[in-house]
Simulated scan of single mutants.
Amino acid sequence: MEMPKVVLASALARWLPDAQGASGEVALDVSGATVGAVLDDLFARHAALRGYVLDEHGAVRHHVAVFVDGQAIGDKRRLDQPVAPGGEVYVMQALSGG
């Protein structure tokens, strides 16, 4: 059975201990059928990422964007959006400023 994949943009991938010195995105196979379950599996392996991606209420932080198969998640507080087997969850830091 195909597993979903999480792709971390380079700004987040640099926080992975095994990606030190790597440049670019990092893709990881994970388990889970929802965005929340996929992220939980990611954080079980890389706990330090949780604080960069989620706030203290468990919502995706304002400065982070999450996409499922190319579509931005609609509500950063609801992580029950489905992720298909073989689907891709892309996590990146959003740009802000003016």
Rank of each mutant, 00 (worst) to 15 (best):
G24V: 02
L16C: 03
V35Y: 01
L39G: 05
V30G: 01
F67D: 07
G97Y: 08
A19K: 12
L28P: 01
V6F: 13
Q71C: 12
M1I: 12
M3F: 14
L95S: 09
V26L: 09
S10V: 09
Y90G: 04
K5C: 14
A44G: 11
V26M: 08
A94N: 06
V89M: 03
H63E: 13
L39F: 10
A11D: 09
A11K: 07
G58N: 05
R50Q: 11
L54K: 05
H46M: 00
D29S: 15
V68G: 05
Q93G: 07
A84F: 10
V30R: 02
A72I: 12
S23V: 14
Q93Y: 03
D41E: 13
G86H: 05
R50H: 09
V38A: 10
V7Y: 07
A59H: 11
V6W: 14
V60R: 00
S31I: 13
A59E: 06
V7Q: 09
A72S: 13
Q20H: 11
D69F: 10
G70Y: 10
V30P: 00
Q20I: 12
G97S: 07
V7K: 11
H57F: 11
G51R: 06
A44P: 07
H57D: 12
H62T: 11
M3I: 11
L16S: 02
V91H: 02
P4D: 06
V60F: 00
G98C: 03
V68Q: 05
M3T: 15
G36S: 09
F43H: 05
L28D: 01
A33V: 01
D41V: 08
A47P: 14
A19I: 08
L79E: 04
L54C: 04
R78V: 10
V6I: 15
L95E: 08
G97K: 06
G24M: 03
H46D: 00
R14H: 07
D41W: 08
V53T: 04
Q81D: 13
G86S: 03
K5L: 15
V30L: 06
G98W: 06
V35S: 02
L28R: 05
D29L: 14
V30W: 00
M92E: 01
G21K: 06
A59I: 04
A48P: 14
K76I: 07
